[in-house]
Design a protein around this nucleic acid. Structure first.
Lengths: 156, 156
DNA sequence: TATTGTTATACTCTATAACTATA
DNA sequence: TATAGTTATAGAGTATAACAATA
């Protein structure tokens, strides 16, 4: 007979289909972003530029997209005045990108809108401790992304 | 003076930008799906049809997209033989959708690919307990989505 | 020559509006 | 008339290939 509990089996099943849950989480983010008229890729760009300005090539690497996609995403953000393209004196092939004041403001609104959307959903759990675990889980994922990026940099 | 610890302040900051983390999680899912040549919307459809067959209108509601988007997403899945459109005898305006054997097989490959990708990332955390918390967090989000959907149904 | 970024082009997902078939 | 789904069309994000500017 198996010594696994029902809870353990449920966790195994979840582990196998964890991507499905992440896919739904992504949809909820998109819904939240709808209220500030941003797409998921645009939101990622604004978030990156909130940490530091970046060349086009650096954005492509961080976003895990090809260079032409960066041009396309940033075109829309520049048109709305949320991001500024700046020439680089030391190497005139390169283009630097920076958040404008308006861009930072929209990013904060986006953070709030998405946070509210996710809060509404996690708040449907009957146990407040479960709601905490949901947000704690995302906090841990953020740390994991940092660790993963560091590991990749070390290898290369 | 504030009685908040550094850990509490970090959690507050995370709570405000939790959407950014979810946005990166979404990108990692997309990367994982690349190996089985599925898009995020296609993966969501296969996941839904794995639970039960569904009319086009039901898919649109569950996916939170408009009806023409369902047609577009399913077109690609039907062309690849992963999903079958079936006429409904009782109301010939409606169209039912079901996973094919091949579709189920591709879905399982997708689950495995995305799970492996997320496992690689969560595995970069130095503490195995943290890796567990990451996956546990997504498990809780899945429960939250179910609770949220139930709550919405009750209201309507 | 090699590198950086953009342009040209095509495919998917998204939407709204208009249409067809059915109820 | 009303409803279910598709078609027509347009805009954004993605890719590859080709190009211009610069190193």
């Amino acid at each position: 007979m198996s010594s696994r509990t029902a809870g353990e089996r449920a966790r195994d099943r979840e582990r196998k289909t964890v991507g499905r849950t992440a896919a739904w989480l992504a949809k909820q983010v998109e819904i939240g972003l709808g209220s500030v008229d941003l797409s998921l890729p645009q939101y990622r760009v604004l978030g990156l530029l909130d940490e530091s300005s970046a060349f086009s090539s650096a954005l492509a690497e961080r976003l895990a997209v090809r260079p032409p996609s960066v041009t396309a995403i940033v075109d829309g953000l520049v048109a709305r005045g949320l991001v500024e393209r700046r020439p680089v004196e030391s190497d005139r092939r390169r283009v630097d990108h920076a958040l404008t004041e308006n861009g930072l403001s929209v990013l904060k609104s986006a953070d709030a809108a998405v946070g509210a959307r996710l809060g509404d959903i996690a708040g449907c759990l009957d146990d407040p401790a479960a709601t905490e675990r949901a947000f704690d889980g995302l906090f841990v994922w953020r740390q994991a992304f940092r660790a993963h990026r560091t590991a990749r940099r070390t290898v290369q």
